[in-house]
């Protein structure tokens, strides 16, 4: 038995396809990204080694910091929206009839591609014929804004479909966690005279803290690398008003052919994501996990 199950050839055959694909197509490119960041390179002619110049340029690049700021705003906004999702999940998990159907309905936008969501919301936000402005004009607003063309509004307008896309996902996770709490604990609290609000805030929420921390990391990291929807909806415009880190990087490489600088930004994106993940993990780490 042991001899069969520790046959080196068999292990190699079984692990190699997956390991090769992940190694060659994920890990090597990641390392190369840092290396290309040291080059002056337009993607066609030979690379020229320029040391840390691209990274220094990035640090002084106002556009990069603006896009980083937008990514950060998105991260902040996504984290705050978790409170709302948590509230909905607490209600949903407290003996509501039809909760199974409701959380499935909430999930539907998550199944759409980012391109479809972007195209749909371009229509919703359409200044003259979109759903939003049609409604606003019917109820008396004479000049509702052109949501996606207004530099001061565009970023916040884009937050709405992002919220719309992910609401069901987070509700689903919280709901599952809340349903995992043993009924006996809730029952005991009720007998001791705890009100529904006390049960929600003092018992349920603290008990699913581990899951909440995971979702905070997901929301922040997901926001920092957010790309598709913004790229399709506004292309980062107007005039960079909705540019985020990933869309800025993508443009540098595939529109301006500045592959060296683009790689440097891509590598910074990786480093920032990793650092932020580690910081949140450390900051929210508890000494002991709650037992029940």
């Amino acid at each position: 038995m042991n001899k069969v199950m520790s046959n080196k050839w068999v292990i190699t055959i079984y692990i190699l396809p997956a390991l090769l694909l992940v190694g060659v197509l994920i890990f090597i490119p990641l390392l190369l990204s840092g290396y290309y960041g040291l080059m002056d390179w337009n993607g066609i002619s030979a690379m020229e080694f320029i040391g840390l110049e691209n990274y220094i340029t990035a640090i002084q690049d106002v556009k990069f910091w603006e896009s980083a700021w937008h990514s950060l705003l998105l991260a902040l906004f996504s984290t705050l929206s978790l409170v709302g999702y948590l509230a909905i999940s607490v209600i949903l998990a407290s003996r509501i009839k039809g909760s199974d159907l409701l959380r499935k309905i909430y999930l539907v936008p998550m199944l759409l591609s980012s391109v479809a969501i972007a195209q749909l919301w371009i229509k919703v936000f359409n200044p003259t014929n979109g759903m939003l402005n049609s409604v606003l004009m019917t109820i008396g607003f004479e000049n509702p804004p052109a949501w996606l063309a207004e530099p001061s509004i565009v970023l916040f307008a884009i937050f709405v479909p992002i919220l719309w896309q992910y609401a069901g996902f987070y509700i689903l996770i919280y709901y599952a966690a809340l349903k995992n709490i043993p009924e006996t604990i809730i029952e005991a609290a009720r007998i001791d005279g705890a009100t529904p609000l006390q049960i929600a805030f003092r018992i349920k929420v603290p008990l699913i803290m581990t899951v909440i921390k995971v979702t905070i990391v997901l929301a922040i990291v997901g926001s920092l690398k957010y790309f598709d929807l913004i790229y399709v909806m506004t292309g980062g415009g107007p005039n960079g008003a909705s540019e985020v880190m990933a869309s800025y990087m993508y443009k540098l490489a595939f529109s301006s052919n500045d592959f060296g600088y683009g790689s440097a930004i891509g590598f910074l994106l990786l480093i920032i994501t990793l650092i932020v993940t580690i910081i949140i993990r450390k900051a929210t780490a508890t000494k002991e996990e709650i037992q029940y």
């Binding site: 992940v22 190694g23 890990f27 990641l30 990204s33 994106l269 990786l270």
Partner: peptide
């Protein structure tokens, strides 16, 4: 562990080298 690290990385950080490959 290597596979699990693969869960965390942002794809945009690898897309330029991947394109070149």
């Amino acid at each position: 562990g290597l596979f699990m690290v693969g869960l965390m990385i942002p794809i945009h950080s690898s897309i330029i080298p991947l394109f070149n490959m």
